[in-house]
Design a protein around this nucleic acid. Structure first.
Length: 560
RNA sequence: UGGGGCGUAGCCAAGUUGGCAAGGCACGGGACUUUGGAUCCCGCCACCGCAGGUUCGAAUCCUGCCGCCCCAGCCA
């Protein structure tokens, strides 16, 4: 009965070792530092769970920091969505909410310090010239003609940059490191650029803005971050991260550790692609339930618990990886299975008339909301009457072998109700089956047939006169290929045209009529559904399919 | 090509004083079942990227090779 032990990841191992060496007397401090220029997605959720999870487990803290050093791309809308998403995932940054922008003054002072130490200079070259003199992967760069300005001149120029004396893009402040370094990041990286752009936080107090490399590590240091956890692509930046820290006289220094970002099959995770889908209307917005955004997953009906569990299951390592979407789906099913009430909802109704059940009579059936543990969620009443709806695909005139549902002459159990036999199918002029005439076995309302005959299966149904009409939105994977971003072509060419199917004529049992926005159900034999918080109004019920149930019949049928 | 990383079953991922390969997902089979759901069993014969070497013994140490990812934004 012991807890299944989660293998600790390499980051926790590093922390354990450092702790054992007495390195962090003041505890562990991590941070989640999104740039507010887009919505968070499940890849961010991995990082959030990692950072906040470590803080929680080590009795430390995790900061939420907006990495807002670029005024041209950032927006208040994103800040709010980020905060909402992190909170919704179940994490709390307490009083530790920060903005890199709040450190601009401090950063500026430190920049002057580097200039005085001869470790930074103002470069008058254009962006093109800087690019052209950076060298290549195999050839060293060439020094800027302005590289050897005196600290005094640099200081004067830098102050005038700040004062707004120079036009946008005319000058930059560069770190003076090594134009021949094999690590391109060390070839005199730009620290500041001039940009007359209103910043969402600092307004127009600044016309110079620090670059990521100069701002990030220093922000970490200011906040007392012990472990600055980021994704693999920043690995080559670590020497620069450390170099900047080395220039300052700091009492303690953060350590940057990189891990592999999350990729998921049948979706895209890059901000660029995500915003393109939203912008072009391929989806209904950042919270479209087909998107891997936190907002989309939330709207779809995923629970924070499921996402956190998913983050645990996928682990944390340094190898590039693409996780199978199935794992995410399995994880939500596991979560929902034990906490969501069952109900019946006929998606594509087929009319059934029970010929030996009197017209006008109603029989009430009591059924558990959670059959696996009835006391847990109580019971509800289900009306039974002469005319019912059953699922269209639960009837087949010519049943293939192993088909356990209804067909002429065959019997099936109505879930919680009696066993019925199909006597004949009524067709329209076009030959389409529009109604089934059936007979019920009155002895089977609350038990197996007296004669001991076996009934192969139970199907869901609703009483036509009592049913509640609902709209169902059946979501499927957004793309038809496992890796739509690969290949260099237009990823949108792989969009799944059937990623959303709306069923406007579904019929649910009466109990579902009491659903409140945000409620979840398992519609038996079909899947888990979420009453859409926005679209359930004016008495209209709209359910999003969170995830279908595992469908083993589909597999059998597919095999023939 | 220079630099930085990574390579353990279809997909994730443990394994670190060298002792002779966890777990999850997927997949296959069975039991049970008034959800073809859930649950429970069983299976999934892993040459640990490849080739050498050290050693009584290596996924773990050494050498060489191969493959994949990241870096040449005044983005983060």
């Amino acid at each position: 009965m012991s807890e299944p032990t989660r293998p600790r990841n390499f980051i926790r191992q590093i922390i354990d070792e450092e702790l054992a060496a007495g390195k962090h007397p003041d505890g562990i401090v991590t941070r989640f530092p999104p740039e507010p220029n887009g919505y968070l997605h499940i890849g961010h959720a991995k990082s959030i769970c990692l950072n906040f999870g470590i803080a929680r487990d080590y009795g430390g803290r995790c900061h939420l920091r907006m990495d807002d050093t670029n005024p041209t791309k950032e927006d208040q809308e994103y800040i709010e969505s980020i905060q909402q998403d992190v909170r919704w995932l179940g994490f709390d940054w307490g009083p530790h909410y920060y903005h890199a922008a709040d450190y601009f003054e401090r950063l500026y002072e430190w920049a002057e310090l580097l200039i005085r130490k001869g470790k930074a200079y103002v470069d008058d070259q254009t962006a093109e010239q800087i690019r052209d003199t950076r060298g290549t992967l195999t050839e060293p760069g060439t020094p800027s003609p302005y590289r050897d300005r005196t600290p005094e001149e640099n200081l004067d120029l830098f102050r005038r940059m700040r004062a707004g004396e120079f036009p946008d893009g005319s000058r930059v402040l560069r770190a003076k490191i090594d134009m021949a370094s094999p690590n391109l990041n060390l070839r005199d990286p730009v620290m500041y650029r001039i940009r007359r752009e209103r910043h969402h936080r600092t307004g127009d107090r600044w016309v110079i803005y620090p670059m990521y490399d100069w701002a990030h590590g220093q922000s970490d240091a200011i906040e007392g971050i012990t472990h600055s956890i980021c994704t693999l692509e920043f690995e080559a930046h670590r020497p620069l991260y450390d170099w900047f820290l080395d220039q300052l006289d700091l009492p303690r220094r953060p350590r940057q550790i990189e891990f592999a970002r999350l990729n998921l099959t049948y979706t895209v995770m890059s901000k660029r692609m995500l915003s393109e889908l939203v912008r072009d209307g391929a989806v209904a917005g950042w919270d479209d339930p087909r998107l891997p955004t936190i907002a989309g997953l939330r709207r779809r009906g995923y629970t924070p618990e499921a996402i956190r569990e998913f983050a645990e299951r996928i682990g944390v390592a340094k190898a590039d990886s693409t996780v199978d979407l199935e794992l995410l789906e399995t994880t939500v099913r596991d979560d929902l299975n034990s906490r969501v009430p069952r109900a019946m909802c006929v998606h594509r109704p087929l009319r059934v008339v029970i010929e030996n059940f009197p017209e006008g009579e109603v029989r009430t059936i009591e059924a558990p909301n959670f059959p696996d543990d009835p006391p847990k969620m109580g019971h509800r009443q289900i009306p039974f009457s002469r005319v019912l709806w059953i699922e269209e695909d639960d009837f087949l005139e010519q049943p293939p072998k192993k088909f356990l549902r209804l067909s002429p002459g065959r019997e099936v159990r109505l879930r919680w109700g009696p066993v019925i036999r199909c006597d004949r199918a009524v067709k329209d002029p076009g030959g389409r089956v529009v109604e089934l005439r059936c007979t019920l076995d009155p002895d089977t309302f609350s038990g197996p047939p007296r004669d001991g005959r076996k009934i192969g299966n139970a199907i869901h149904w609703v009483s036509a006169a009592h049913a509640v009409p609902v709209t169902l939105r059946l979501y499927d994977r957004l793309f038809t290929v496992p890796n739509p971003a690969a290949g260099g072509g237009d990823f949108k060419a792989h969009l799944n045209p059937a990623s959303l199917e709306t069923l406007a004529g579904a019929q649910a049992e009466p109990a579902v009529g009491a659903a409140r926005p945000g409620d979840r159900y398992q519609f038996e034999r079909r899947g888990y559904y979420f009453a859409d918080p926005q679209d359930c109004r004016d008495g209209r019920l709209v359910f999003n399919r969170i995830v279908p149930l595992r469908d083993s019949w589909a597999k059998i049928a597919a095999k023939g």
